[in-house]
């Protein structure tokens, strides 16, 4: 009888799982059985450098910065494309220049759109 090639993989997988889970399980068991727990309200309270916690941690952040970051990233990457174009500019033909112009104009259109939407004005 020939063993499937996956048998050794399965054995290894189970061993790896046990290797990770056994210490966790032991720690859990130790905590359940032996740990001298003395819970109380103060101890179980949220830790905030000794102060009592106020309010909720789920506060909202404005997405304005996110848009800024995206626009910056786009023009950052554009510079990477423009550099080789500029270096090889004298040797380029008519078609290459046109396609590069279209590329830049596409991005400029995006910038104009963002500008018109008021993304660039920071409140």
């Amino acid at each position: 009888m020939t063993l499937s090639p996956y048998v050794s993989l399965t054995v290894l997988f189970v061993a790896a799982l046990a290797f990770g889970l056994t210490p966790l399980g032991l720690a859990w068991l130790w905590g359940r059985v032996f740990s001298p727990a003395k819970p109380n309200a103060t101890k179980n309270a949220i830790y905030e450098c000794g102060l009592e916690s106020k309010g909720d941690a789920w506060v909202q952040f404005r997405p304005a910065y996110y848009l800024y970051a995206i626009i910056f990233l786009i023009f950052d990457v554009e510079a990477v494309f423009l550099l080789p174009f500029a270096v090889a500019f004298t040797g380029l033909g008519y078609a290459a220049c046109l396609s590069m112009l279209i590329f830049v104009l596409l991005l400029v259109e995006g910038l104009a759109w963002a500008w018109a939407k008021g993304v660039l004005t920071w409140e």
């Binding site: 001298p36 109380n40 103060t42 309270a45 000794g50 102060l51 009592e52």
Partner: peptide, 14 residues
């Protein structure tokens, strides 16, 4: 002082 006492309370035994 209240913060110190609270932190002491929040430490695990022993």
């Amino acid at each position: 002082a209240p913060q110190v006492v609270r932190l002491y309370n929040q430490m695990a035994e022993p």
